[in-house]
Design a protein around this nucleic acid. Structure first.
Lengths: 231, 231
DNA sequence: ACAAAAGTGTTGCAAATACACCCATGT
DNA sequence: ACATGGGTGTATTTGCAACACTTTTGT
């Protein structure tokens, strides 16, 4: 789709407190990628080789291009910086403080994404100097831009979504045990759950399929489950 | 605050699938203003004298300017189009489909706002050809842009917020009766509530102050309440 | 006096919580 | 054999839903 992108077109609100023309500014997306590693809910941070805050950890993110939606942008950028693909994205919020970027006006729209770390080993893509998973409760306090706040908000949003619908499959291996799932929930929500009540709730939802296998190498011989195929 | 707004600055994601420079585009805010009139939850729509869709009803909205946040923008624009001031705003969502605007690329961030219509009589500000409250369940199906969808989403968001915290004071007169409050809830949520259960819940929350007055001119002589002053 | 709306408690049910022992596996 | 973690059921509480009559006021 090719379009005309006229700048300085008259603003439709041109009668009151009028700025003479419509202002344009850069837009970025920042992505809070949650993963579940070592029985810990983690978030993916990068150090970049170019741009601002090259000496700070920050969320993966980048600028919107002409012919893409915000979600497209987020997906493309995450892929560019990490190679991660086909994962779940949710829009969280727009940040527009005028001084949130040190040198120019940039508005960002944040997303969160869930990944199965098993499927996505970390590699250094170009433009990325370092990349790593950080424990959610042990994040550097001096992330670039306003990314500490963006992470807080994204986590909040994620928790809220968890209660309604629960698409957490992306965080776990294909086959997982119930204690693993419970631990994940506890990590996301930041509280302890009762084992028996948790199992009851999950089974009532009828979303898991018992694979019949037991997980080897772990005491107790827990059953492995997978998500049911949807119809 | 004066800032340098360089265009065509190198994009920090300049290694993969790189567009040569950072793209800039217009940003608007659209505001879904909910009001409560004639025992009906309503939404405020306008017909504008300039811009696109001048022959369609649409949400109040307009372009972001250089030195304001999105919320500032929404407040300023709503004031410009209606005169409404000091009311409650919540950010809802960003819309970025590339063809959502007929002639150029525009991203919008939607807000919802709650007003006491009693305090805000409708007047025709410049730039506005018509303005009116519409029953939420009787909105023209051909609003400008994607405003039908924006309203749906905003209403959804409002409902969700209502269950957690409940800032509904902006929709009612200073002093109101419990049946009035209940009717408002029923309108927002789109369902009928049990009178006694409703009163129980509200009183448990301990947010209302009994003014001791009775509302005159209405049968049954209902008590007038107001929100408690916060500490 | 009559009509219309406000106000008031109790009961039943379903969902959430608390709680303790036995079993399977790895070491 | 022993230690570690997995798996199971029940009793209690709590929050939510259903329900009918009396009181107040306007006409």
């Amino acid at each position: 789709m090719k379009r005309d992108l006229p700048k300085n077109q008259p603003n439709s609100l041109n009668d009151y407190q009028v700025k003479e023309d419509s202002y344009e500014c850069s837009i970025t997306t920042d992505i809070a990628v949650f993963g579940y590693v070592d029985n810990q809910l983690k978030i993916l941070l990068t150090k970049r080789t170019v741009g601002n805050f090259t000496d700070h950890w920050m969320l993966p993110g980048g600028a919107l291009q002409a012919e893409e939606t915000l979600k497209d942008c987020a997906q493309k950028i995450l892929f560019a910086l990490t190679g991660f693909e086909s994962i779940h994205f949710e829009q969280v919020k727009a940040y527009s403080e005028v001084d949130r970027h040190p040198t120019k006006r940039v508005i960002t729209i944040s997303f969160y994404a869930l990944v199965k770390p098993e499927n996505h080993p970390l590699t250094l893509k170009s433009g990325v100097e370092q990349i790593d998973w950080f424990d959610l409760d042990n994040i550097p306090t001096n992330l670039g831009f306003d990314h500490n706040r963006i992470i807080r908000d994204a986590h909040q949003f994620f928790k809220k979504n968890l209660k309604d619908t629960l698409v957490v499959g992306e965080l776990l291996p294909q086959k997982f045990t119930l204690p693993e799932l419970q631990n994940l929930y506890e990590n996301i929500l930041g509280l302890e759950l009762d084992k028996r009540n948790f199992r009851k709730r999950i089974f009532q939802m009828d979303i898991l399929k018992n694979t019949g296998e037991k997980k080897p190498g772990v005491k107790g011989g827990p059953m492995l489950y997978s998500y049911k195929d949807e119809a």
